[in-house]
Simulated scan of single mutants.
Amino acid sequence: MRPFLTRFAPGKFPYRRLFLALAIGFIGGCIFFYFHLPLPWMLGALVACLFASLFNMPVAVPGIVRPPMLMLVGVVLGSGFTPTMAGSMIDWLPGLIVLIIFVVVTACCCYVYFRRAGGLDHWTAFFSGMPGGLVEMTALGEVYGANTRIIALVHSSRIMLVVLSLPFLLSFVGGQALTGTTRAGASILETPISADLWLFGTGICGMFLGRLLSLPSPFLMGPMLVSAAIHLTGVSEFHAPWEIIAFAQLVLGSALGCSFAGVKKSDILHILQLSVGSTIFLVAASTSCAMLVAHISGRPILSLLLAYSPGGLTETSLMALSLHVDVAFVATHHVLRVFFVAVSATFLARWLKRGRLAKTDA
């Protein structure tokens, strides 16, 4: 505990840059809210901090700030699982199979794109082309000698571009007007203390479980699994206040916008150019899959667009929560995508490395 607390010492922790980032993010959120733009506290903070980063303002959201926010989001996502939906999960199977096919096809296409259009080396293109798992792909890329900064920037750009464009795609394809006035959940003044105790207790237990099981994104998926188990079994029906959800969106949006801080503008523009091309392809492919499954299964197109979205698990699930879409359905698809990408990329990379070594020896 002491080494953890020492990281918050005034000389080590960038309090000024963090508070400036959150202040700029809050202003961006207020502007988005005033103009009734979608997801104001996430997208407004993201855009504002992105511009602050591009103009070299001293902003930063340290990585140590993200886990508590991910814990809260994980618990909130898990609360979307209810006992009544347990029997209907078998109906999700066809859509999940289509999702796996989507991941395989898009990963192959993105690899070729980054190799030929982007001129990236084999391993950097391989891990950059995987449609998911920013942290996992960056960590694996380091093991195989890839350029981890490019991998991180590509995945951050993909998530950012999807988060920025998806609300407007949902409005155009799904036919639902998205405004910044949507409120998810009751106010913190209306929820009982017992709900707050359930919220934080579930989150802490979930974090330990996520680390124990070595789950991808343990601070998000651990609390989500524990919360889902509690809600599916009917032990509790607690829900997080909307203020906590909005604050988590503010911090995570600011963190995504600040992820480009300290990077040369030329590098950012180069990666953004590459990411725009790959993101357009991914969004078009995911939209096509969603429309196909909607035609076959009759499920609402809005939930399918979110479920197949190539954005981040956290960001897309928060959209589903804010839009009152089936959070459990969306989160389950994204969890499967993250698991499948992480596992398949690990085994495929090992197989490819052995094949390359065998050719070298020959």
Rank of each mutant, 00 (worst) to 15 (best):
A48P: 09
M42L: 12
G133A: 15
Y111I: 12
Y308A: 04
T124G: 03
A60K: 03
C49F: 07
F260T: 13
A342K: 03
G87V: 07
V105E: 05
T346W: 13
A60R: 01
A86M: 12
L93F: 13
L232I: 15
S236A: 14
P218N: 05
D326S: 03
Y308D: 01
I245E: 00
V173G: 12
D196H: 13
F55A: 11
F238A: 13
G80K: 00
P167C: 10
L209G: 06
Y113P: 06
V235F: 15
W41F: 15
H231N: 08
L70R: 05
I159C: 01
A48G: 05
M291C: 12
I100Q: 02
P310G: 02
L232M: 06
S214T: 11
T360A: 15
S236V: 08
A9C: 00
Y34Q: 11
T182H: 09
A261Q: 14
L178G: 05
D91C: 00
V325S: 09
G87P: 10
T316N: 09
L39N: 03
I97W: 13
V327D: 00
P218M: 07
V59W: 01
Q249I: 06
W92G: 00
G78W: 02
F35I: 12
A349E: 12
V235M: 14
M89H: 02
D361A: 14
G80Y: 00
L212A: 14
V154E: 05
Y34S: 09
A184Q: 10
C289F: 14
R299C: 05
P223I: 06
F35L: 08
S309D: 06
T202M: 02
P67N: 01
R299V: 02
F4V: 14
D361M: 13
S53Q: 07
A228H: 08
G25L: 07
A184R: 08
M130P: 01
C258Q: 03
G201I: 10
L70P: 04
H122S: 09
L189Y: 14
L72C: 06
H295W: 13
L161Q: 11
A345T: 15
W351N: 01
F32D: 02
V343E: 08
G95N: 06
V75F: 10
A52P: 08
V103G: 00
C30I: 08
W351S: 10
N147Q: 11
A146W: 12
V226I: 15
L140E: 09
T314Y: 03
F347Q: 02
V226Q: 01
P94G: 00
L215Y: 10
S214M: 07
I230A: 12
R17E: 15
E136G: 07
W198V: 13
L212C: 13
R211S: 09
G201C: 05
P223C: 09
V103S: 01
R116W: 14
G180T: 10
M1N: 13
G201D: 00
V263I: 15
G78E: 02
T82I: 14
V251G: 04
G129P: 01
E237T: 15
P3Q: 05
A246I: 11
